[in-house]
Nucleic acid binder design. Structure first.
Length: 586
RNA sequence: GGGCUCGUGGUGUAGCGGCCUAACAUGCGGCCCUGUCAAGGCCGAGAUCGGGGGUUCGAAUCCCCUCGAGCCCGCCA
């Protein structure tokens, strides 16, 4: 190591010391005589001065230097002349007066500026990711990500958890997300699958007596990408023996409270609100509500039992419901803006949107003229409407009013900037349904996964009314993102077989696919449960980023391509032969 | 598979039927300049307006197709 100091570390205390620095040319300012170069390394930036009368050779080298050249310079740390200090820079009290300089490696002109933050097309950033990583945003996010992972490892280590690695070459399970398949030279015609999650392995670790397990685990899913979804991503995976739901949720709350406060300056309301799935869906139309703002929807059906308004009467007559929300200050919305909100509601199945703007002395409304005065008053009172507010109502079957108003709620919050970026609004969502009906496949599907235990009090419904069975499953949400979820698992063979039966597995298929689990449960499997949390999403929320790509060093673009390496790519005929694979492309 | 938005010098934007022989900033090259820190000044190079077809006397601008990017729906046990 030739470096004596890091550029960003130099302070007034170093004045008088000799320094040998290596780093990148952040910026070069050539005054003809004096040349200033801001030399940058990971720790920061320091100004280096080249004086032609002191060191003509070094000055000549500095004169040729361009952005992102890698330089080695040697000189003396000096206080800056009075009046030229730069308070913007941590190193701004000092500068290095260079007497020697050497170009370690020049740089071509850049495809985009490293020294400035400005927006750059993401495809260009990803193609030159190594340059993008030098910019402050990515450099900062990588540091934050490291701290999150470090915090998690320390946290669980202190509690006696063991980090255990599980296989990346695992077994394909046709349920759930599509697998990435891996062929094998030595096993013609057979395939491994990359794990969608270490789910079965961690349960088997509990059977193996590990008791408390965690892992920073890479997971793979061959599904379409989103801002918060990549084909490979990282989970905090954890599992505990002899625990109940509250033990897991309590641990998660403790981890996230402490980690958020240690690594961010954001507000973290505690304790985390706890909503059942049913409550979240009813109030916010979502199982991952953003609780940084209000505007929960309110049940109004009972106010319109006698109404003359045909639309409401029709919906109520066929068993539908009427719900509403209050948009504070929304009375100033134009017809056009309200029409746009109506469109938002339609994406969730609402046929229309009934609206009423509370203006001084009158109700400007799409439907109030069909209501009695009593109905108008009751509606305003129930929604706590005040002058200047806009009341929005949806009448429709089932979840539609909640979901439509939930979508409108998010849209209004976006327009009004209601979501405080400096708050982390965590919540626990519990009592998820165990099963959901798959209309296409004409069968019941596991909402979480087939190893999830039903709630004790719903056992009797398993065969009689499967759709009403609640699971011991839970999610951790934050600011409208699903951060993670988990469940208490089934640990007895009989119940697991019953679950497979409900999911339409023949005993033969259950044996072929999950026989190892069923067998393991016959050898003293402890009760156990756990959860998995998306690390990429946690870091993104902490960093204030809206895409997890911003917190991954080398992410893929929306069409699942790695633009830097150019993956995926075609392979040699020879490789395919070794793997006993023939291609059939259409 | 579908919906929406966007493709203009290296980068970021403007222009949205004729004033475009395409503007601005930054970057790039040259010259000048000894206290700047987004250094400054002067000069210069750099774009067949993603690609193809069409409408029109005339297209960066309007229409169709296509390719690419982003966001969303489906999908994500």
């Amino acid at each position: 190591m030739r470096r004596t100091h890091r550029c960003g570390d130099l302070r007034a205390t170093h004045v008088g010391q000799r320094a040998l620095l290596q780093g990148w040319v952040h910026r070069q300012r050539d005054h003809g005589g004096l040349i200033f170069i801001d030399l940058r390394d990971r720790e920061g930036i320091v100004q280096v001065v080249f004086n032609p009368t002191i060191a003509p050779e070094a000055h000549a080298t500095a004169s040729d230097a361009r952005a992102e050249y890698v330089l080695e310079i040697e000189g003396t740390v000096a206080p800056r002349p009075a009046g030229t200090e730069n308070p913007e820079l941590p190193t701004g009290a000092v500068e290095v007066v260079a007497d020697r300089a050497q170009v370690l490696n020049p740089s071509l002109p850049l495809p985009f500026t490293v020294a400035e933050e400005g927006p750059v097309d993401e495809a260009v950033r990803l193609t030159y990711r190594y340059l993008d990583l030098r910019r402050p945003r990515m450099a900062r996010n990588l540091v934050l990500r490291h701290r999150v992972v470090k915090f998690i490892r320390d946290f669980f280590d202190e509690l006696g958890f063991l980090e255990v690695e599980t296989p990346i070459l695992a077994k394909s399970t046709p349920e759930g997300a599509r697998d990435y398949l891996v062929p094998s030279r030595v096993r013609p015609g057979e395939f491994y699958a990359l794990p969608q999650a270490p789910q079965q392995f961690k349960q088997l670790l509990m059977v193996g007596g590990v008791d408390r397990y965690f892992q920073i685990a890479r997971c793979f899913r061959d599904e379409d990408l989103r801002a918060d979804r990549q084909p490979e991503f990282t989970q905090l995976d954890l599992e505990m023996s002899f625990v109940e739901q509250d033990d897991v949720l309590g641990l998660a709350e403790d981890l996230f409270t402490r980690m958020s406060r240690a690594l961010t300056t954001k507000n973290v309301p505690t304790p985390f609100p706890r909503l059942t799935y049913d409550e979240a869906m009813t109030l916010y139309g979502s199982d991952k509500p953003d609780l940084r703002y209000g505007m929960a929807s309110v049940e109004l059906s009972d106010l319109f039992g006698e109404t003359e308004f045909e639309v409401f009467r029709g919906v109520l007559g066929s068993g539908g419901v009427i719900r509403g929300i209050r948009v504070p200050g929304g009375a100033r919305y134009s017809r056009r803006e309200i029409d746009e909100l109506t469109e938002t509601g339609k994406t969730e199945g609402a046929r229309g949107l009934a609206w009423a703007a509370i203006e001084p002395g009158e109700l400007r409304s799409s439907f109030a003229r069909f209501l009695s005065e009593g109905e108008q008053r009751a509606m305003i009172e129930r929604l706590e409407g005040r002058e200047g507010d806009l009341l929005l109502l949806v009448a429709a079957p089932g979840w539609v009013p909640s979901k439509a108003l939930g979508a409108i709620r998010i849209e209004v919050a976006r327009r009004e900037g209601l979501a405080d970026p400096d708050t982390l609004a965590y919540a626990r969502i519990t009592e998820f349904p165990l099963l959901e009906w798959d209309e296409e496949g004409r069968r019941w599907d596991a909402v979480h996964h087939p190893f999830t235990s039903p709630m004790d009090e719903d056992f009797s419904l398993l065969e009689s009314d499967p759709g009403r069975v609640r699971a011991q499953a839970y999610d951790l949400v934050c600011n409208g993102w699903e951060l993670g979820g988990g469940s208490i698992r089934i640990h007895r063979r009989e119940l697991q077989e019953r679950m497979f039966g409900l999911l339409g597995f023949t005993p033969e298929r259950a044996e072929a696919q999950f026989g190892h689990m069923l067998r393991a449960f016959q050898y003293g499997t402890p009760p156990h449960g756990g959860m998995a949390v998306g690390i990429d999403r946690v870091v993104a929320i902490f960093a204030g980023e809206s895409s997890i790509r911003e917190v991954m060093a080398f992410p893929k673009n929306q069409s699942a391509a790695d633009l830097l390496m150019n993956a995926p790519s075609q392979v040699d005929e020879r490789q395919l032969r070794d793997l006993h694979i023939g291609l059939e492309l259409d």
